[in-house]
């Protein structure tokens, strides 16, 4: 191979670097463009009514999405109550008892599969399980669908975080005669507290913006959430319905809802990040 001259090498380097910098700026600029449009178009929809009133039919002034905001919060909270404990203890199993169990291989494998399963498939599954059997859509079904998405995420981070806790800590607790369950819940959990909280927060952030699993489970509704045994209003499906509608005032509402959900998700993600950084 003929050695390239220094000049060629340098100019190749310069060109590649220039292209790389340029495409980075293009990519980042487009992503900024997305955020800019969401903020610019969404902020106009924010007013007192938006947060306090029920939706109105198209063309009628002064409606809001208070029911959908509350619905999203309630459904996400219920999903967290179901999903986080199951995921947490599944993670405990993998980290604390998994080493000598034949179960841990298959559980890890299946958990990865579930993490890669499209959220709409989970919606279809919950529809077949909980909507067809009781013959109506419900907020519960929506919460279960979101919980199913959370479980593998929480299990994975829990396992990783518990693995970071040094074994000497467990050994010293056990040597003092503390039973295994107490060691895990009182000592290992305490050592990994921030990591566990971060994992759960990220999982909540992830599901609070989900739309597809709610389409056939919680559906949507223009009324207050009530006891979740009926179709339940929520922000993301509202965005979908309103954006697809031909009415400009509904589309405006959809932009407002988009901004709100983006802010909510980013806030949760930032909280999680902040927690993790504090740890270091």
């Amino acid at each position: 191979m003929k050695p390239r001259s220094n000049w060629t090498r340098r100019s190749i380097n310069f060109m590649v670097m220039a292209v790389s910098t340029l495409s980075s700026f293009i990519g980042i600029a487009v992503l900024v463009w997305v955020l800019y449009e969401i903020i610019y178009r969404g902020i106009g929809a924010f007013n007192w009514d938006f947060f306090t009133k029920l939706p109105t039919p198209p063309g009628v002034e002064g409606g809001g999405l208070a029911n959908a905001i509350l619905g999203t919060v309630v459904i996400t909270a219920l999903a967290t109550l179901i999903g986080v404990p199951i995921g947490l203890f599944a993670g405990v199993f993998l980290a604390e008892f998994g080493l000598r169990s034949k179960l841990s291989g298959p559980v890890r494998f299946v958990s990865n599969i579930l993490m890669g399963t499209p959220s709409i498939i989970i919606g279809v599954f919950v529809y077949a399980m909980l909507v067809v059997t009781v013959r109506h859509f419900s907020g519960y079904a929506g919460a279960v669908a979101l919980a199913i998405i959370m479980i593998p995420l929480v299990a994975r981070t829990t396992e990783d975080m518990l693995n970071l806790v040094p074994d000497t800590l467990r050994e010293s607790a056990l040597a003092l005669g503390v039973p295994r369950w107490k060691t895990t819940l009182d000592i290992v959990f305490k050592a990994a507290k921030k990591g566990l909280l971060t994992g759960s927060l990220l999982a909540v952030a992830r599901v609070s913006g989900e739309t597809a699993p709610l389409l056939f489970t919680a559906l949507n509704s223009p009324y207050w959430p009530g006891w979740l045994n009926k179709p339940t209003g929520n922000l993301t499906v509202t965005i979908y319905n309103y954006a697809m509608s031909p009415y400009t005032d509904w589309q405006q509402m959809a932009w407002g809802a988009s901004l709100l959900i983006t802010l909510g998700v980013l806030f949760l993600t930032l909280c999680a990040r902040f927690l993790l950084q504090e740890k270091k």
Binding site: I28, L31, W33, V34, L35, E37, I38, R41, A205, R206, S208, G209, E210, T211, T236, I239, Y240, A243, Q251, A254, W255, S258, I261, T262, V265, L266, T269, L270, R273
Partner: peptide
């Protein structure tokens, strides 16, 4: 910023896609 953008829900990209 890029990690934060990875957290933006997909319906937001859908909205932006349709209208912008």
């Amino acid at each position: 910023a890029i990690e934060l953008l990875a957290a933006v829900p997909s319906i937001i990209y859908g909205m932006w896609g349709l209208f912008v």
